[in-house]
Protein backbone atom coordinates (compact mmCIF):
# COMPACT_ATOMS: atom_id res chain seq x y z
CA UNK A 1 0.00 0.00 0.00
CA UNK A 2 1.21 3.50 -0.79
CA UNK A 3 2.10 5.76 2.12
CA UNK A 4 0.02 8.72 3.26
CA UNK A 5 2.58 11.02 1.69
CA UNK A 6 2.42 9.27 -1.67
CA UNK A 7 -1.36 9.24 -1.66
CA UNK A 8 -1.59 12.92 -0.68
CA UNK A 9 0.80 13.82 -3.50
CA UNK A 10 -1.15 11.69 -5.97
CA UNK A 11 -4.46 13.39 -5.11
CA UNK A 12 -2.85 16.83 -5.13
CA UNK A 13 -1.30 16.16 -8.53
CA UNK A 14 -4.67 15.00 -9.92
CA UNK A 15 -6.64 18.00 -8.63
CA UNK A 16 -4.05 20.66 -9.36
CA UNK A 17 -2.92 19.11 -12.65
CA UNK A 18 0.77 18.90 -11.76
CA UNK A 19 3.20 15.97 -11.77
CA UNK A 20 3.48 14.12 -8.41
CA UNK A 21 7.27 14.25 -8.78
CA UNK A 22 7.21 18.04 -8.72
CA UNK A 23 5.40 18.18 -5.38
CA UNK A 24 7.57 18.73 -2.32
CA UNK A 25 6.53 18.36 1.31
CA UNK A 26 7.25 22.03 2.04
CA UNK A 27 5.16 23.25 -0.91
CA UNK A 28 2.30 25.58 -0.04
CA UNK A 29 -0.90 24.54 -1.80
CA UNK A 30 -1.73 28.12 -2.74
CA UNK A 31 1.61 29.87 -3.21
CA UNK A 32 3.72 27.07 -4.71
CA UNK A 33 1.15 24.80 -6.33
CA UNK A 34 -1.30 27.54 -7.37
CA UNK A 35 -4.41 26.15 -5.69
CA UNK A 36 -7.33 28.57 -5.86
CA UNK A 37 -10.06 28.57 -3.22
CA UNK A 38 -12.34 26.42 -5.36
CA UNK A 39 -9.55 23.84 -5.77
CA UNK A 40 -8.99 23.82 -2.01
CA UNK A 41 -12.58 22.66 -1.63
CA UNK A 42 -11.96 19.96 -4.24
CA UNK A 43 -8.73 18.89 -2.54
CA UNK A 44 -10.47 18.41 0.81
CA UNK A 45 -13.24 16.43 -0.87
CA UNK A 46 -10.75 14.21 -2.71
CA UNK A 47 -8.64 13.58 0.41
CA UNK A 48 -11.78 12.49 2.25
CA UNK A 49 -12.67 10.20 -0.62
CA UNK A 50 -9.16 8.76 -0.94
CA UNK A 51 -8.77 7.98 2.76
CA UNK A 52 -12.40 7.28 3.65
CA UNK A 53 -12.40 9.91 6.39
CA UNK A 54 -14.45 12.95 7.43
CA UNK A 55 -12.46 16.10 8.07
CA UNK A 56 -13.53 19.23 9.88
CA UNK A 57 -13.71 21.83 7.10
CA UNK A 58 -12.19 24.65 9.11
CA UNK A 59 -9.25 22.56 10.30
CA UNK A 60 -8.68 21.01 6.88
CA UNK A 61 -8.75 24.32 5.07
CA UNK A 62 -6.34 25.83 7.57
CA UNK A 63 -3.66 23.39 6.38
CA UNK A 64 -1.07 25.29 4.35
CA UNK A 65 1.54 22.86 3.04
CA UNK A 66 1.67 19.35 1.63
CA UNK A 67 3.63 18.21 4.68
CA UNK A 68 1.00 19.66 7.00
CA UNK A 69 -1.69 17.86 5.01
CA UNK A 70 0.15 14.52 5.37
CA UNK A 71 0.43 15.04 9.11
CA UNK A 72 -3.17 16.22 9.48
CA UNK A 73 -4.61 13.36 7.44
CA UNK A 74 -2.55 10.77 9.29
CA UNK A 75 -3.89 12.16 12.57
CA UNK A 76 -7.52 12.10 11.36
CA UNK A 77 -7.04 8.52 10.12
CA UNK A 78 -5.77 7.48 13.55
CA UNK A 79 -8.70 9.22 15.26
CA UNK A 80 -11.24 7.61 12.94
CA UNK A 81 -9.67 4.15 13.04
CA UNK A 82 -8.58 4.08 9.40
CA UNK A 83 -5.46 1.98 8.75
CA UNK A 84 -2.86 3.73 6.63
CA UNK A 85 0.78 3.15 5.69
CA UNK A 86 2.96 5.79 7.39
Amino acid sequence: MATVEERVKEVTAHVLKVSPDEIKMEDSFTEDLGAESVQSIELVAMFEEEFGIEMDEDAALAVQTVGDAVEFIAKVCREQGVDVEQ
Binding site: S37, V38, I41, E42, V44, A45, D56, E57, D58, L61
Partner: peptide, 16 residues
Protein backbone atom coordinates in the same frame (compact mmCIF):
# COMPACT_ATOMS: atom_id res chain seq x y z
CA UNK B 1 -24.38 23.02 -0.25
CA UNK B 2 -21.40 24.66 -1.86
CA UNK B 3 -21.99 24.17 -5.54
CA UNK B 4 -18.52 24.34 -7.04
CA UNK B 5 -17.20 23.27 -10.44
CA UNK B 6 -20.53 21.71 -11.35
CA UNK B 7 -20.96 19.55 -8.25
CA UNK B 8 -22.31 19.80 -4.71
CA UNK B 9 -19.53 19.90 -2.11
CA UNK B 10 -19.24 20.57 1.60
CA UNK B 11 -17.19 23.61 0.66
CA UNK B 12 -15.81 25.73 3.44
CA UNK B 13 -18.38 24.36 5.84
CA UNK B 14 -21.10 25.63 8.09
CA UNK B 15 -19.09 28.10 10.16
CA UNK B 16 -18.06 30.05 7.10
Amino acid sequence: AWFVEGVVTKGFGRKS
